[in-house]
């Protein structure tokens, strides 16, 4: 140790920054501190304070703090049953469950002659979906839907999602069986396969938005578009569409899920294979 000790010692701010490894290593102060006894004594004092502080606060934590906190939080979540991961979180949960556990969605059908069984591909465990091919294209209220379609949708009544979300879906899939109406009172019929095209101002922004889906979705990306495929429930598809709208994405396929609608037929938990392509707007 150099015994250099002069009046050119840096300020306590510089010394403190040195202590925290935040001082420029090439500064004059840095060189001085390394060779100054007085500064080193100051640093020793800082070290003692630091050790004491950590020790004191560490000792303040009860031994069983983590376990106690986990239990308290569990009780609190239970007590406040409205507290759950947000609807979008629910989306993840449902989507993940569908992907990971491969829940098979089988709709009851009254007349086998009127249906075709379609296996949704592109998933590890493909669910079985029944489609009513005989239902003509058009817009329907739920009561106007053919009984077989209502039954195939897996619910006896439509689902009012007015307070749940602003959008509903009425995707036709490849076969264009149905078209949704912009009438808010109509019921959207959600096909088990939905494809949409969105226009976005920034693909990079969209990419960031969808990074969180990495574990549940498949992506195909090029310079001008991002295509995302994932499985989710009808309810969460509607939620997803709403979020896209809120993020400023513009739907380029108006015959597909309609943000204006507030009802959709069938079971909200029915699985939908959703493919969305996001293209850069000009």
């Amino acid at each position: 140790m150099n015994t250099n000790n002069n009046n050119n010692c840096p300020s306590f701010e510089e010394l403190s920054a040195y202590f925290d490894s935040e001082l420029d290593q090439f500064s004059l102060e840095y060189a001085h501190i390394q060779n100054c006894d007085k500064c080193q004594r100051e640093l020793d004092a800082y070290t003692k304070v630091s050790v004491m502080l950590k020790e004191e606060l560490s000792n303040s934590v009860p031994d069983d703090f983590s376990a106690h906190m986990i239990n308290s939080l569990k009780r609190r979540r239970k007590r406040d049953s409205s507290v759950d991961v947000s609807p979008f979180g629910f989306f993840f949960k449902v989507a993940a469950l569908l992907v990971l556990s491969g829940i098979i969605v089988v709709a009851l059908i009254p007349h086998k002659s009127n249906i075709v069984q379609q296996q949704v591909s592109d998933t590890k465990v493909a669910p079985l979906i029944f489609l009513d091919k005989l239902t003509p294209s058009g817009s329907y209220t739920h009561s106007q839907l053919p009984p077989s379609r209502r039954s195939a949708a897996g619910a006896s009544d439509s689902i009012d999602i007015t307070n749940m979300m602003q959008v509903s879906t009425g995707q036709m899939g490849d076969e264009n069986l149905y078209t949704s109406s912009e009438n808010k009172d109509s019921v959207a019929v959600i096909h088990p396969k939905v494809k949409q095209v969105w226009s976005v101002d920034s693909l990079k922004h969209a990419e960031m938005q969808f990074a969180q889906f990495a574990e549940v979705a498949k992506f195909a990306t090029n310079n001008s578009s991002i295509t995302m495929t994932l499985k989710l429930s009808k309810k969460n598809l509607a939620q997803f569409v709403r979020n896209c709208k809120e993020d400023g994405f513009r739907l380029l396929s108006p015959s597909q899920p309609q943000p204006e609608q507030t009802h959709f037929a069938g079971n909200k938990n029915d699985s939908v294979l959703y493919t969305a392509t996001f293209v850069q707007s000009e």
Partner: peptide
């Protein structure tokens, strides 16, 4: 956690609860 795995939430509590308390 976003996928609904509550055990990961507990793990965050274990990792950061004590320091947050301090």
């Amino acid at each position: 956690l976003k996928l609904g795995d509550k055990s990961s939430f507990d793990e965050l509590v274990v990792r950061y609860g004590a320091k947050a308390f301090q």
